[in-house]
Amino acid sequence: MWREAALVAGKDLRIEARSRVATNQVAPFAVLVLVLFGFALDPDRGVLTRASAGLFWVAVLFAGLLAVQRSFAVEAADGARDGLRLSGLDPAAVFLGKAAAVAIELLALQVLLAAGVAVLYNAPLDGPLLLVATSIATTVGVAAAGTAYGVLAAGLRVRETLLPLLLLPVLAPVLLGATKAWEAAMGIGIGDGRPWLQLLAVFAVVYTAFGVLAFGPLLEES
């Protein structure tokens, strides 16, 4: 199964590398969101610095939505989704591969956005261990939930507008947990970040397990 997952992830990442949609559209969109928040909020009163963790994760979630939509848009053209079903690949491996590709894109994006909040918002990126652990847990959760809901919406004509409606409410606890954990790591929040990290880890495990089990039937129905 891992070989097949790596094959699917490699295919998706190769498509993104060739099409450059992630680098030329998704990443600039996420940076633009950060810049627009900078315009909307008052930088002189430290609002941006205090809100930097939340704004960072909002930008990541919006970009994550685009990445998930893109992941299934490439399967919609020329019957590729049928090709994926015909390939004989284990659906669980397809899920893990597609989620892994989205996760890798999001992790790369977070490096860019972290530099963005450090420069634009003067965010203190202290506590690197908690920051990185939170990023990894959140990314796995977003990619797993996004891929599970992405295949659910993939076969529908209104998939572009439906996916955010399905996914964003599900990701609300992730946004909350990731923001609180980062604020704790950055020293601008109240309390310990570890319980939030544990919540994020549980979410990631639950949605990864759900995706492994449900992706096959959802792919057949989509």
Partner: peptide, 20 residues
């Protein structure tokens, strides 16, 4: 799944990825 792995379908769609 066992069937799919052993058959080859050339359909109206090509099951191809444009960017590859």
């Amino acid at each position: 799944r066992a069937v799919r792995r052993r058959v080859g379908l050339l359909g109206h769609a090509g099951f191809l990825y444009d960017d590859l």
